[in-house]
């Protein structure tokens, strides 16, 4: 149980990078970008292939990030210069990337066992420094001792650095223009911003994060697979929606924090659901879809119920008020 939750949180942090990318396209740019399903795998594929060919895993991950950026820019070009509708541009790119990813990997699955990855490098360095023992001594959980704290800490750190950078970027002059592009395109182009360029840049950035996340997931899981991106956009959306519902989205900094939280909560819900007897690992996508449906429907139902209760109370109060008024008139007439 604890082990399952622990690894959910680990994975949650890694997937949170992807969710931040989805937040950027869906919420900031108001662009439902389906490239994600493809670019996630592109990141994984590029990193894996570079790693098995002996590239330093950190450099390999950085190259993956760049590959995602390019993929996102192409989607942006399709939409702005090719005048293709946003959904279709993303789907076209997603389909195209499927073949490109196979080309990059040369086959449908690339295992990374026995390879030096970001995860192994960090874990080793961490163990050499003896930090794990120190932590375990301090916390001393009897029932549960995790394999290593390295992944959790390093990934959490990476996510928070990315979050802070993103928050800062969205406060710069370019960042404000990016947000305005998603908020009111007509207005921001009347203030001399090139919305085409901003859209392309924003989608590039979004998919760069997605691909980076894909590269880390591949190294964490020990393989990359051409099908690992299926439904990724839904997982990203789930994280964004759950996060916003649970933690609020008043400001950008709050929203990005919420998205990270949402990514972790999603992983935990998924892990718990998979412990239910009759559900199997192959049901993951179905569970994901259900989680998203619920996270979309429940907040609506809750708020409409609240509204109903409020109206009912109002009506009752008014009735009671009339009663009192009626009683008073009775009294007077007596």
């Amino acid at each position: 149980m604890f082990t399952a939750i622990f690894s959910s949180v680990e994975a949650g942090f890694i997937y949170a990078i992807m969710a931040l990318g989805v937040y950027l396209s869906f919420r900031i740019l108001d662009f439902p970008d389906l490239t994600v399903d493809g670019s996630f795998v592109t990141g994984a594929a590029v990193a894996s292939v570079l790693i098995i060919n002996g590239t330093n895993p950190f450099i390999a991950s950085a190259v993956a990030l760049l590959a995602g950026f390019i993929a996102g820019c192409v989607t942006g070009l399709l939409h702005t210069k090719g005048k293709i509708n946003p959904l279709l541009s993303g789907i076209l790119m997603m389909i195209a990337l499927y073949s490109i990813n196979l080309r990059i990997m040369g086959r449908s699955n690339v295992p990374l066992l026995q390879q030096e990855t970001v995860v192994t490098v960090l874990t080793e360095a961490w163990q050499k420094a003896g930090i794990d023992e120190a932590i375990n001594r301090v916390i001393s959980l009897q029932s549960f001792v995790p394999r290593t704290w390295a992944v959790l800490f390093c990934m959490a750190l990476t996510v928070f650095i990315i979050k802070l950078l993103l928050d800062q970027l969205l406060k710069t002059e370019i960042g404000l223009a990016l947000r305005a592009t998603g908020d009111n395109k007509q207005m921001i182009s009347s203030f001399s911003a090139n919305t085409d360029l901003l859209t392309i840049f924003g989608l590039g950035l979004s998919n760069a994060l997605v691909a980076f996340s894909g590269a880390l997931v591949a190294q964490y899981g020990g393989f990359s697979d051409v099908g690992m991106g299926i439904g990724m956009i839904i997982i990203g959306l789930a994280s964004v929606i759950i996060g916003e519902a649970l933690f609020g989205a008043r400001s950008v900094a709050r929203a990005t924090l919420a998205v990270i939280g949402g990514a972790i909560v999603y992983r935990i819900i998924l892990a718990l659901a998979l412990r239910v007897q009759f559900l199997e690992t192959s049901d993951v996508k179905l569970i994901t879809a259900l989680i998203v449906m619920l996270s979309l429907i429940v907040p609506n139902v809750l708020s409409s119920q609240k509204e109903k209760r409020r109206k009912k109370r109002r009506a009752q109060e008014r009735e009671r008020g009339e009663h009192v008024a009626g009683a008073q008139t009775d009294y007077k007439s007596v």
Binding site: L169, T172, E173, I174, L176, A177, R179, A180, D183, N184, M187, I188, F191, S192, A193
Partner: peptide, 22 residues
């Protein structure tokens, strides 16, 4: 831009004549 603050809107307008930077 409705989802941005008054000062952010003014900042957007302030940059009309300038190149936007980081």
């Amino acid at each position: 831009a409705p989802n941005m603050t008054i000062e952010e809107n003014l900042a957007l307008a302030y940059n009309r004549t300038k190149r936007r930077t980081l």
